[in-house]
Write a protein that binds this DNA or RNA. Sequence first.
DNA 1: CCAAAAGTGTTCACCGTACACCCATGA
DNA 2: TCATGGGTGTACGGTGAACACTTTTGG
Lengths: 228, 228
Amino acid sequence: MRSPSQTFSYPYPHPAVTTDVVVFTVRNNRLAILLVKRANMPFAGSWALPGGFLDIDEDLDACAARELEEETGIAGLYLEQLYTFGATHRDPRERVISVTYYALVPQDALTAPRAASDASDVDWFDFDALPPLAFDHAAIVQMAHRRLVAKLDYSTIAFGFMPKTFTLSELQCVYETLLNQPLDKRNFRKRILAQDLIEETGRQRRNGKHRPAREYRARFAKRVEIIK
Amino acid sequence: MRSPSQTFSYPYPHPAVTTDVVVFTVRNNRLAILLVKRANMPFAGSWALPGGFLDIDEDLDACAARELEEETGIAGLYLEQLYTFGATHRDPRERVISVTYYALVPQDALTAPRAASDASDVDWFDFDALPPLAFDHAAIVQMAHRRLVAKLDYSTIAFGFMPKTFTLSELQCVYETLLNQPLDKRNFRKRILAQDLIEETGRQRRNGKHRPAREYRARFAKRVEIIK
DNA sequence: CCAAAAGTGTTCACCGTACACCCATGA
DNA sequence: TCATGGGTGTACGGTGAACACTTTTGG
């Protein structure tokens, strides 16, 4: 707003802008996502992705994080932008553009989410047993899943599901879940260790009446992103 | 937020939504992009990406295609969504969310674009000699370029720069330009032919006082079609 | 016959894959 | 001592990289 001539505002109807988030986790060796039950029209009573309307002076990423926390109580996740959905009739109320995100929750952080705000209920659903979803959220979920699986090959995205420390068997289990196929133990360990992405903590994990497992942690500080 | 009917409209200020497009081509063995000179405030006289405001009942993809054609006369490109930029102060006029796209133009289709609409001028610029850009368009261009280069490895995106028929040397030249490094001729030909993506037309190309080159065409339906 | 770009094969190093047995612990 | 998951090495085939000369044409 530098000069009067720059205070122009586009004199045509503006669409609403929302963010929606696909939150993945691995739970009971199944891929699962977080859904909220809508309290309000339209689609009241339907399950949907957590999300909501953008505040006029709020960054897109902040909106996604805020709506996620408001509706589910989950905060602190790293959100990555997925795609922007803007078909003209995707929302019966008015024209709505949805900027979508996805995020990963470590297995151990599965605190039960609590519903609030526009959500009357919140729960995790196994990815291959999802209920019918409101709006075009099924398409959003599909795209997020494709992105997640594609990224397994060329990024460290799978570590997003791991707690701070973990065993190689736990890590392999996550990969097997995401790829939906068994992996050879020796080859898996060789590959992971060769990438030099994890290091031993020096401690051991005793999980039963058998040999203890070595405990590892990720060696990289932040998420190592390889460009898509 | 509740309404008995479905004519509800979100009762808070809506942001404006625009689309912007990064159009790449390869010209004189250099990567180049298409820019327009802004006719209006803000940033009047600055170079910027072609783009503009979304109509309220227009799909996002259609908006990107329309604005591109209005400002540059280029139509018929396959546009792929890149990322959505929504920092709160990226436009001095008002809050603006920009859904960005990128597209590829074949080498031979380099008809001079013609300026119109909000653009007082249009031109191609070598990617490594871009002028200062309006808004956050430099960041958009950077992201588009990273995506383009990343996709060379695992997609057929390079064919988007090729005419309907081409020689292997021409194709190699495009790869070398995009990767900014020379490639071994024998390995390149072996790799391309092994992928079974192209086939001989049976004709030859005589381009000088030397051995003619075999002419090929893409075997798959190309995404980038025609320029107007 | 000369200049200039087109076209062609082999070797080698590395990596992903297939595959089976011993180890450490708690009960 | 047994049941259970943890941990280890080798051999093979396929793929990407390095590397130089012959062929075809126009002038």
